[in-house]
Design a protein around this nucleic acid. Structure first.
Lengths: 195, 195
DNA sequence: GTCTATAGTTGGATAGAC
DNA sequence: GTCTATCCAACTATAGAC
């Protein structure tokens, strides 16, 4: 707010680079030395901006939580008919910007390590809430599974799996297509339940 | 084959316990000391049976590979119509016994660490081959995605996600149901392509 | 086949100069 | 705000006694 850059540029660069390395090599597989080297600063410099390794991750997680919160806030104020379920999936896909996708991929690939990190409890809550908004707790098991798979489909698309080298937008479109088919199996138009 | 237990009982117990701990805490998050302690032996004793930490994992991976190879071998000798694609999914589900599920979960949750472990190349090859058997390389993107999601669905079911506490068999049945719907979207009966 | 002891690294984190 | 230097803990792995 006052003189220098807000929260220093280095601080943000650390977060960005750390998340990249965490995703590539895993959280425990990435040392602060590596992060520092990639940024061409020293370990101690990193420690100036973040008190612990976990705090670096925490910053990135909070940004992703904010993005999910926007989707949740929207979903809570509408009636959850078929069309709005589809819209929720679209908004989820849109909310996953580049850094959030990186985080999602990181979380999926580092679950055991992350189980003990408090920074991620909030994130998990949000994902759980999205699932429950998409499929009521008393919905048939198959429907709940399909809704989970729908969001996974979006993630899969964004990650553009290693072996298929294809146009990113094309894959994203396909992923969205599949996801939409999963949350609304038939061709229901939007007023099937009047409960 | 000769006097003692074949390959010693301890060797197998190490593998079992190691895989459990790797899954719970991650590969790098688990030390050989912990493995040894859980088995009430010493670190050096573990090193007697396995030369490296990676080798412990390697043993478990090979078992899982064998299971997948059986499915692949079957799939290669049949014509891949709709009914056989469904059957492939069923066989994949059946091939995932308790230990293999543990391994699958482990692999999914530790991808960055495992990228550098040679033990897993073979495993990844098999999974890729299963995908290609299920959906031809020139199939529409959405179909390829659906087939991937089908196998993921089986995994999700087996892992009986944390928040839903339900009957295991019921979840497995639902997962299989969803998976079957994904590999054969409509109600196709089995001879749609004569290529 | 299992132990003790220890070598040799590397990690996260801190103190204090500049 | 960034550095050098360093502490301490933990890890993988080995050597050699029993």
């Amino acid at each position: 707010m006052s003189g220098t850059q807000r929260r220093s540029d280095t601080r943000d660069r650390i977060q960005q680079v750390a998340l990249e390395l965490f995703t590539e090599q895993g959280y425990e597989g990435t040392s602060l030395r590596e992060i520092a080297e990639r940024l061409e600063v020293t370990k101690a410099a990193v420690y100036y901006h973040y008190r612990t390794k976990e705090e670096i991750l925490g910053g990135a997680v909070e940004e992703a939580i904010d993005a999910l919160d926007e989707v949740i806030a929207w979903a809570r104020q509408v009636r959850m008919d078929s069309e709005n379920r589809r819209e929720l999936v679209r908004r989820y896909a849109a909310a996953l910007d580049e850094r959030a996708v990186l985080l999602t991929r990181f979380i999926q690939g580092n679950q055991p390590v992350l189980r003990e990190l408090k920074s991620l409890e909030g994130y998990r809550e949000r994902v759980k809430e999205l699932f429950e908004l998409l499929a009521a707790r008393d919905a048939p098991l198959t429907e709940q599974l399909r809704c989970r798979l729908a969001l996974i489909s979006i993630n899969l698309g964004k990650l553009a799996f290693a072996d298929l080298e294809l146009d990113e937008r094309e894959v994203n479109a396909a992923a969205l297509d599949v996801a939409l088919g999963l949350v609304v199996p038939r061709g229901e138009t939007g007023s099937e339940d009047a409960g």
